[in-house]
Write a protein that binds this DNA or RNA. Structure first.
Length: 610
RNA sequence: GGGGGUGUAGCUCAAUUGGUUAGAGCGCUGCCCUGUCACGGCAGAGGUUACGGGUUCGAGCCCCGCCACUCCCGCCA
């Protein structure tokens, strides 16, 4: 054995595991890392050493190494941490491995030190095929092992690069990064909040912010002019693949600007991010689509435009049809729309049923469809159609053998949303059958604009803000506010990529009279209540508020898209499960009696069994 | 709160219509092996079929309950 552990005490690694090349041949190096795999040929023994950067093959050759050392090496477990000292050499002819970057060389082990012996692993992490299929429950419990997998390490690296690129870009653009409190106050609107009891005054609570929305507007009044923050946000709502109880936003606000400034800024930011993370040049400016067009053509306010199957309007075709389901819908002010799911005539009973359930979820009675199979239209409703109606369908929907036509006859918004949902379902089915292939390198960015400022709540019989009450109306629509609120467009915008809502924002109201109209006349909130809920903001706006606007991007979703995953859990180091628990730390957990007493809290529900 | 999916060896999965002692690959243990890189060969250990009930002569499989993970709806201004 070479230099003992004592001799190595202050010797650090000389290279990382993705660094050595033929040019290093002859050098004595020290590598630190994890035992990725071990191949014991009886005499020769290969140990692949892995660190964050990559892998290097090391070789124990019994002809120039003490038997005792070889013996110790042969008993190394996977994932033990070792420090290896040895001499770099070019691999013998024919034994190079072109699949790893260091595959032309190897390190002849002279000595090694076990820094930490790994126990037998709960799951293997050296085979990406197997590891990627391991139950997520186990991966989350042993997250530190999961994160060692090259794929997860890559995701962490991309996330870091994107965060740094964002800060660098925003700095270049003259923005200040300002931190805002995470101990905030409870606000009645919006998502359910996490509450933090206040020890100093019994019965009072902080709330964790759903977003820094109010602080960033106050910062504009404070004269910051250009603010951004990678802000942690908290929402106590049920989880999804793309929603965690705590998540990160790229939060941005600017003064003295209009919508175009935001579009240009975000296009520049995303250009920089895509270049940094994927070395891709994305074309700008992005396409802009009105809310109305998005619903009308794709049936959703965040359209995935990477494939067709667009909605077609058939209202005029069926206005006076003898098929009362269609003509009746038109007569009561609705529309008839359809999509052509090309190649889905073979849809199973179960698939048709799933789609029918979607339609029923929107209040429809059923789902009309036509399967074009064997040269004929197979459908329960086609017998009601005239020759002219069939002719019109064939033309407008470009019907061919193998198509599946799906109809919605309802009020415009509902009909659009039904088909929008079904369109996405059909795309999923076709994708799983390999009949719809989307280039993973394709990114369809677009702005959705001209959202309605207000929506009507039928049950409460009143208007409410589609976005939030500080969203400015489009200037030319302000006269409509009192007479025709429905037609007022907000200066709100969403940025969408591949059907994912990446972020949204708006130009805010900075004129007190418009704000007063919105609160008191449109939203019907009393001056007293307005004062209570938004008092400090309205106060701030009295002392010189610049016109301003901003946007927030979902940073986790952004990273997920860049990493090619659909679950943001894959780009968060320590995510929560769908029930909001952490399987590694076993949180949340009960509080001690002492803690509760200090906080003046009494727990009524039985604590979960310890 | 509601609906769907999954749960069998450490991991990934099998197990015919409810029928003998629940199998395979990887991993693990032991032995052999000097150019492997998913090394190879031989042998071996390893199971409360998530958990609790029920039906049955007999349950991994059927029924009821429950737990965990996951996807979706509601929810997320």
């Amino acid at each position: 054995m070479g230099p003992g552990p004592a001799g190595n005490l202050f010797m650090k690694r000389t290279h990382h595991c993705n660094e050595l090349r033929p040019a290093h041949a002859g050098q004595t190096v020290i590598l630190d890392g994890w035992v990725h795999s071990r191949r014991d040929l009886g005499g020769l023994l290969f140990i692949d050493l892995r660190d964050r950067e990559g892998r290097t093959q090391t070789v124990c050759d019994p002809s120039n190494l003490a038997p005792e050392t070889c013996d110790r090496a042969s008993r190394l477990h996977s994932e033990s941490v070792v420090r290896i000292t040895g001499k770099v050499r070019v691999r013998p002819e024919g034994t190079q491995n072109s699949r790893i970057a260091t595959g032309e060389v190897e390190v002849m082990v002279e000595a090694f030190e076990v820094l930490n012996e790994a126990a037998i692993l709960p799951f293997s992490i050296d085979d990406p095929e197997v590891a990627s299929k391991v139950n997520e429950e186990l991966r989350l419990q042993y997250r530190y092992l999961d994160l060692r997998r090259p794929e997860m390490a890559r995701n962490l690296k991309i996330r870091s690069k994107v965060a740094i690129a964002t800060r660098s870009f925003m700095d270049d653009q003259g923005f200040l990064e300002v931190e805002t409190p995470t101990l905030f106050k409870s606000t009645p609107e919006g998502a359910r909040e996490f509450l933090v009891p206040n020890r100093r005054e019994p019965g009072t609570f902080y709330a964790l912010p759903q977003s820094p929305q109010q602080f960033k507007q106050i910062l504009m009044v404070a004269g910051v002019e250009r603010y951004f923050q990678l802000a942690r946000c908290y929402r106590d709502e049920d989880l999804r693949a793309d929603r965690q109880p705590e998540f990160t936003q790229v939060d941005i606000e600017m003064s003295f600007i209009d919508r175009e400034d935001i579009y240009g800024l975000i296009e520049g930011l995303l250009k920089r991010v895509w270049k940094t993370a994927l070395d891709m040049d994305i074309p700008t400016p992005f396409r802009r689509i009105s809310f109305h067009e998005a619903l009308n053509r794709w049936g959703i306010d965040k359209p995935d435009t990477r494939f067709g199957m667009e909605l077609v309007d058939l209202t005029e075709t069926f206005r006076s049809s003898s098929f009362k389901v269609f003509s009746g819908a038109v007569a009561s002010g609705g529309v008839v729309k359809a999509i052509n799911a090309k190649g889905m005539a073979g849809a199973t009973q179960g698939q048709i049923e799933t789609m029918t359930e979607y339609a029923k979820g929107f209040g429809a009675k059923g789902l009309a469809f036509i399967k074009v199979e064997g040269g004929e239209w197979k459908s329960p409703i086609v017998k009601f159609f005239t020759a002219a109606e069939k002719e019109s369908l064939t033309t407008t929907l470009a019907i061919e053998e193998g198509d599946l036509i799906l109809f919605a006859a309802d009020q415009w918004l509902n009909a659009c949303e039904i088909l929008g949902k079904i369109r996405l379902y059909c795309a999923d089915v076709l994708k799983s059958q390999g009949r719809l292939v989307i280039d993973p390198q394709r990114f369809d960015f677009l702005w959705v604009v001209d959202f309605p400022l207000l929506s009507f709540d039928k049950e409460m019989n009143r208007w409410y803000s589609s976005h939030h009450p500080f969203t400015a109306p489009v200037a030319e629509d302000i006269p409509l506010l009192k007479d025709d609120p429905k037609r007022v467009r907000g200066q709100h915008y969403d940025i969408v990529v591949n059907g994912v809502e990446l972020g949204g924002g708006s130009i805010r109201i900075h004129q007190p009279d418009v704000q007063k109209t919105i609160f008191e006349e449109i939203l019907q909130i009393s001056p007293e209540e307005t004062r209570l809920r938004f008092g400090y903001m309205l106060d701030a706006f009295r002392y010189g508020a610049p016109p301003h606007g901003g946007i927030a991007l979902g940073f986790d979703r952004l990273c997920a898209i860049l990493c090619g995953t659909t679950s943001i859990r894959d780009v968060i180091a320590f995510p929560k499960t769908a029930k909001g628990t952490c399987l590694m730390t076993d949180s949340p957990g009960p509080a001690s009696a002492r803690q509760l007493r200090d906080l003046h809290l009494e727990v009524k529900a039985a604590p979960p069994k310890a």
